[in-house]
Amino acid sequence: MKYPQNFCHPKLYDPSGERVSESEEHGLTMLIDKGIGLALFEELLQFAGQYVDYIKLGFGTTMLYPPELLKKKLALAKKENIALYPGGTLFEIAAHKGVLREYFEYIERIGFNHIEISDGTIELPYRKRRKVIQEAVAKGFTVITECGKKAEGSHLEVKELDRTLYSDLECGASYVIVEGRESGKNVGIYNEKGLIDKEFLHDIEKTIAKDVRKYLIWEAPQKSQQIELIQFWGRNVNLGNIQCEDAYNLECLRRGLRFDTFPLNRSETILQIE
C-alpha cells in the first residue's frame, strides 16, 4: 500500500484510524482489467494508483494485445510500483495445451515479473501444481496462486483451502487467491445471490492462523461482498477482482469514508460544536 502526502487532518483522511498506520498490514487491492485502453489505464493509475497493489489482465486478454501496447501497459504499472500480471486462465490454457515452457518464455520476454497459477478450469494434479509453482519461482517470477473451481455451483471446502494455502506458500507462492470469479455468484464462498457463506469464514478463522491468513486474497467483485469481508476480517483484508472504476469506492469503504463502513464509536461524540 502506498500513501500520498496529505495536508488534511488525519481523522478526515482516514476516519477509521486503521488504514493509514505504521503497521505492515495495509490490505492489498487487486483490480481486474478486462481490456481498457492505454489512455484510460494511465488515467486510472494517476488517480487511484496509490491505492492499488495488483492489476490482473482478466481471462486470456493478454494474448489479444499487440506486444508493444502490452509493454506500454507494463511500463505504466511499473512506474507506479503496481504489479501487472496475466490472469490464471491463460496459464491453464498453456498447461492444457502442453506449452508451459513457451508460455513462461513469452511472458518473460514481454516483461512480466508476476504470474498467476491456477486450476479453476483444468485438473492440475497436486504434485504437478507444486512442481510448476517451484519452477516459476526458480525462473524469477513472483507467483500468485488461486484456489477453487470456476464452474457454477462449485464451492470451496475449508480443508481444501487450508491444504492449498500451506502447500503453495511452502513452494514459494506469495499469495493465494480465493476464487470468486468476475460475477461473485454461485462459486467459491458465494451462493447464487452473491451472499457470503459466513460459516465458511468462521471455520477458516478457527482453522488457519492469522499470520497465515494474511496471505489470502479474497475475490470480491460486488460492493456488498467487499463490505462484508471488511466487517468480518477488518479494513486491511486483501481483496481482488475489483472493477477498475471501483478502486476509489473500495478505498473509501476501507477507511470509513462511506456510509456502509462509517466508523461510528458510541464512546465518542459524533458531532462537536465549539
Rank of each mutant, 00 (worst) to 15 (best):
M1W: 12
P4Q: 14
C8R: 07
H9V: 11
P10Y: 04
Y13I: 12
Y13W: 06
Y13S: 09
P15G: 11
S16T: 07
E18A: 10
E18Q: 15
R19H: 05
E22P: 03
M30W: 04
L31N: 10
L31V: 11
K34F: 08
G37D: 15
G37L: 08
L40S: 15
E42C: 11
E42Q: 12
E43S: 12
Y51N: 13
Y51F: 14
V52M: 07
I55V: 14
F59N: 02
G60R: 07
Y65C: 12
P67F: 00
E68T: 08
L69E: 14
K72E: 13
K72M: 07
K73A: 04
A75P: 00
A75S: 14
L76D: 01
K79H: 14
I82F: 08
Y85W: 04
P86Y: 04
G87Q: 00
G88S: 02
F91P: 08
A94W: 03
A94F: 00
K97P: 01
L100A: 10
E102P: 07
E102G: 12
Y103W: 14
Y103P: 01
F104P: 04
E105H: 13
E105L: 10
I107K: 00
E108N: 08
E108K: 15
G111I: 06
G111N: 04
G111E: 03
F112G: 02
H114C: 03
S118T: 14
D119T: 01
G120C: 03
E123A: 08
L124W: 01
P125V: 05
R127S: 11
K128S: 06
V132P: 00
Q134K: 14
E135C: 00
G148K: 12
G148C: 10
K150L: 04
K150D: 08
E152L: 05
E152H: 09
E152C: 01
G153P: 01
S154Y: 09
S154F: 09
E157K: 13
E157S: 13
E157A: 10
D162W: 13
T164G: 02
Y166H: 15
S167T: 14
S167R: 14
S167M: 15
D168W: 09
D168P: 06
L169F: 02
Y175R: 12
Y175S: 03
V176A: 01
V176R: 02
V176Q: 05
E179L: 01
G180S: 07
E182H: 07
G184I: 05
G184Q: 05
G184V: 10
N186L: 04
V187H: 06
I189Y: 02
N191A: 09
K193G: 10
K193E: 15
K193D: 15
K198Y: 11
L201N: 10
L201W: 03
E205T: 11
E205F: 05
D211A: 04
D211M: 04
I217W: 07
A220E: 05
P221C: 06
P221N: 09
P221R: 08
Q226R: 13
E228C: 00
F232S: 07
W233I: 06
N238E: 00
G240S: 12
G240W: 10
N241K: 10
Q243T: 01
C244P: 06
E245W: 09
D246A: 12
D246S: 13
N249E: 12
L253A: 10
R254E: 05
P263R: 08
L264Y: 15
N265Q: 11
N265T: 05
R266H: 01
E268R: 09
E268H: 09
T269N: 02
I270H: 08
L271Q: 11
Q272H: 11
I273C: 09
I273R: 13
